[in-house]
Write a protein that binds this DNA or RNA. Sequence first.
DNA 1: ACTGGCAGTGCAGTATCATGCACTCATGGA
DNA 2: TCCATGAGTGCATGATACTGCACTGCCAGT
Lengths: 198, 198
Amino acid sequence: MDQGTADLALAIGARVKRERQARHWTLDQLAEAAGVSRRMVVNVEQGGVNPSVGTLLRISDALGIGLPALVEQPQAKPVKVTRSGEGAVLWSGESGGRGVLVAGTEVVELWDWTLEPGDRHVSEAHAAGTKELLQVQHGTITVHVADESNTLSAGDALAFAGDVAHSYENPHTQPARFCLAVFEPVVGTGLRSEAGRA
Amino acid sequence: MDQGTADLALAIGARVKRERQARHWTLDQLAEAAGVSRRMVVNVEQGGVNPSVGTLLRISDALGIGLPALVEQPQAKPVKVTRSGEGAVLWSGESGGRGVLVAGTEVVELWDWTLEPGDRHVSEAHAAGTKELLQVQHGTITVHVADESNTLSAGDALAFAGDVAHSYENPHTQPARFCLAVFEPVVGTGLRSEAGRA
DNA sequence: ACTGGCAGTGCAGTATCATGCACTCATGGA
DNA sequence: TCCATGAGTGCATGATACTGCACTGCCAGT
């Protein structure tokens, strides 16, 4: 392993370890979630090996971060100004479904959504960097994110980037309810570092 | 090599070949510039192998494009589904209550908490700036933050700073359940970068 | 002391990445 | 026709990524 590869391996390892610990995951949990051996997770975290992209892909997948983010060389990123995001909008469907903002601070919001059968809520893309996390409490909903649709039943959860157009839909015959956490990065004041296109 | 890895290998190969041909380089030229064997360049271009990051680093270096640009997934999938029962259990009480991480990204986590009668979970103070938002789905819980205690019933919600010691408790006779969103600001070394969205 | 649970190491075995060489095939120019 | 150049293949070989297991050390709880 040459010098450049060794540096990269160390940087990757530091990121993996950091992300794993931020989630309070053990080595075993990450290993199982990623489908690689625990031994390999240790090796990668310590930068002691030159892993294949397949291995890194599985790890980055399990962590929910992009592979490019994992392999970025440590260097200053260009600062990108993001557009202003629209405020959260209360919504109600014609069948009685509604989205209610139940708690919020400047950067995080927690919503309680009820979708009656047939209800559908379409959301514009939010500010860049917005993340949404939801978990279904009962019923079944379908979430569309960027050409992709995911059907979720009670207990299922979903994490996705809210900076693309997305929608929630209840195409079934039973009412559905889910909680939704939205994180919008602060724009205007803070500098937000975004991975720049090379 | 699994399916995801194979797809990625093909995408990488296509990019390498395109970049090489755009420069009117022969296989030998790229191989020598990158310091890898010509045989390996061919294999990578055809997506027939699962190369190590070291190899890809040398190739991306020779081509003058960044490694992240090479490994970007064709259609980035910033969506992660957690199926019911798949979440990592952070805490479980002796009566059967538990806290399960159902969805999370780098900065936000969504938890599904169940507190059986008598259950009590005490949390250390998190990093400065941490915010927690929760809403009770059913039952009644008492949340202690700093010196203050709040009793919440179904539908009630609470937002508070998580950077002080706090605890969740169910001193009643019915099981309780609530969803909890945690936002942890990143105060680290500045190593963190945001995943570039494709 | 005696349990877990987690982080990390050591080692043997297997899969495969990666190399070097020899070869075919196609193109094009003298 | 002969020769040169570049793309791509088949194969034997060495290096190492990756796995699984056993093990140590550490810490918290009882």
